[in-house]
Design a protein around this nucleic acid. Structure first.
Lengths: 339, 339
DNA sequence: GCCGTACCCTTAACCGGGTAAGCGTCCGAT
DNA sequence: ATCGGACGCTTACCCGGTTAAGGGTACGGC
């Protein structure tokens, strides 16, 4: 089966291909009657303009890129990215933009991908995830003048647009809730320390603990995997003055932590309260169900996509604040049992 | 910053752009000395050929497509797709192919996406997931002559290439293992019944139960979500002659089932043995860790990608059998306690 | 010395769209 | 009647690659 081209449409309509182009793009230059005739013929023979030809003649590629730089094993289990992608997609496909995905090994590879995409004119813009405190991707994208939206922030985004959520406020709310329950020794199992949002949460944790006079609070760092999360929990709970509550930076580590606590004979929430960041259906599958900091991730993705389309359209870059994560109390948090 | 074009390279090398094209593509027609000079200049100014221009002049788009047709909420929690994608990516990016992703609502939308991609020349080929027993995507892709690889099968793939795994054998092995432990009342919580692999597993389950004389075996269908999986489990366990072992079609439902069993006061594995299909890290995070049918999903994706690249290169379609899932016994299976 | 040919490179057409410029035609205003 | 201009469409060239055809030049064989 031959792919229909604009010339096929033009021939059947008895006009030039220039006229067809004007008609299909809603430009003036053809009469309304002719436009309708051309549209009907295009629909009839299933014509869609070649994205390559379109991209070539100066227009946009109608595609955006997302490079993911986490090892495959952590990518797989975290519901976060799939949620993000489905939200991004919903927004993009409504404007018939395509999403080009690439999994990369490290920051250098990611930068190389951006340069290639740019040189190949393959994408009109990109999403930047997992911002780091000193991120070389930001100056690279600025240099290339490739439209970009940082997912995360709000600091260190340079002149790029961003979508962010106030993790510091969410963390403070969580700590205050635990303190209200009567907890004084609160620990936190963080994600990769090189990531900006980990730093933001760590700073906020330090700040709020200082403010509330919780001088026994402690943060340990992990890497988002269940394995490491479990190990970190085991270390925390082996301490003589072990914490009575732990906040985990993602759901997978929280579930692993719950397992470890139960394995060590501790009652949750009696002996230990657990809070998970990222509320996925997983949190409700375990026993007790986990109190979690949740937020609408697909909506977050959709906002990011809208931001990117705006930047591509030439609007100035802005930093859009998304909803703050909210705490959903479930069975894994309670007042600490007096020892 | 201006993007370098082939003309820029040609000018600096003092040759025509035709010569540059030959040099960069390893074609004969330029001397080795000139080729090296051109390659050096191209590398120096960071030239990558525009994918649009390339695609336009008859060559390939250097991109393949993957349309995912599951609701966002089940997509997110299943580690399967992310594993598949990272495997596909590994193979594709080695040959600098891009992966275009689209989340679609239903089969009609998916077919429309294929038609659009085809008309736009956006992709050179596509992956087809979640094959159904009477799948309209197959004849559509045959009609369009769009290279495609079905992930799943081996039946109902028409003339398309495929990569598949022998689920029937894996299921039989699992049932035989449970019978060897002493189980006679075995239930299965299946996935969506319209999907081909669900049917294959169901048929295999019926066959092996018949062969082993397990006339009390039963299959119920669910939709891969933890919610539904839990509900199905509750129904099964409320029956007067409840099963002593349940096989779940994915890990999320198995974890939900474990929760329900514990909530109903049953000991796992004493009162109930549980087997999960799809062995993800999640299976090891719960207590007891789940016996699971696992397989190397990224490798599966990589094989699918290799198949697709072959079909795109013009090689005849073949049906490649991937490794059969293997059972990893863990703490959730044991001989049934005598009641 | 002349021809054949292999080699290296240039020229020009082509892919399928977008779009500025040009060119009839019709219509209303002067 | 003539002019000006709006309208509707065509023409032609552009984007940045690929590639068939062609054209010098050098070299070997007769």
């Amino acid at each position: 089966m031959k792919r229909p081209t604009i010339a096929d449409v033009a021939r059947r309509a008895g006009v030039s291909k220039g006229a067809v182009s004007y008609a299909l793009n809603g430009q003036p230059g053809v009469s309304e009657a002719t436009r309708q005739r051309i549209l009907a013929i295009a629909a009839e023979i299933g014509f869609s303009p070649s994205s390559a030809a379109r991209a070539l003649s100066g227009a946009t590629a109608k595609a955006v890129g997302l490079a993911l730089c986490r090892p495959a094993r952590t990518l797989g289990i975290e519901p976060f990215f799939m949620g993000l992608i489905s939200g991004v997609e919903a927004e993009l496909s409504a404007r018939s933009y395509a999403l080009t995905l690439q999994v990369v090994a490290d920051q250098d590879a990611e930068i190389a991908v951006y340069r290639r995409w740019w040189a190949e004119r393959r994408v009109d813009g990109v999403f930047v995830c997992d911002l780091r405190t000193d991120d070389r991707r930001v100056p690279t994208l600025e240099e290339l003048q490739l439209p970009a939206v940082v997912i995360g922030g709000p600091r260190h985004t340079g002149s790029l647009a961003s979508v962010w959520s106030d993790d510091a406020a969410a963390l403070a709310e969580t700590v205050e809730y635990l303190v209200a329950l009567g907890h004084r020794r609160i620990a936190r199992v963080g994600g990769l320390p090189a990531l900006l949002h980990t730093e933001i949460r760590s700073d906020a944790f330090t700040e709020v603990c200082g403010r509330l006079g919780l001088d026994e609070s402690v943060t340990v760092w992990s890497d988002y995997t269940g394995e490491e999360g479990g190990r970190a929990t085991r270390r925390l709970l082996s301490s003589p003055d072990r914490p009575t509550a732990v906040i985990y930076d993602n759901d997978v580590m929280a579930i692993a932590g719950l397992s470890v606590a139960q394995e060590m004979g501790l009652q949750v929430p009696g002996d230990l309260s657990i809070v998970a960041w990222d509320d996925s259906p997983l949190c409700q599958l375990v026993h007790p169900p986990l109190t979690a900091l949740g937020r609408d991730i697909p909506a977050y993705g959709a906002h990011a996509a809208r931001q990117l389309l705006k930047v591509i359209a030439g609007e100035p870059a802005s930093n859009l604040q998304d909803d703050t994560a909210h705490l959903t109390p479930r069975g894994s948090t309670a007042p600490p049992r007096v020892r």
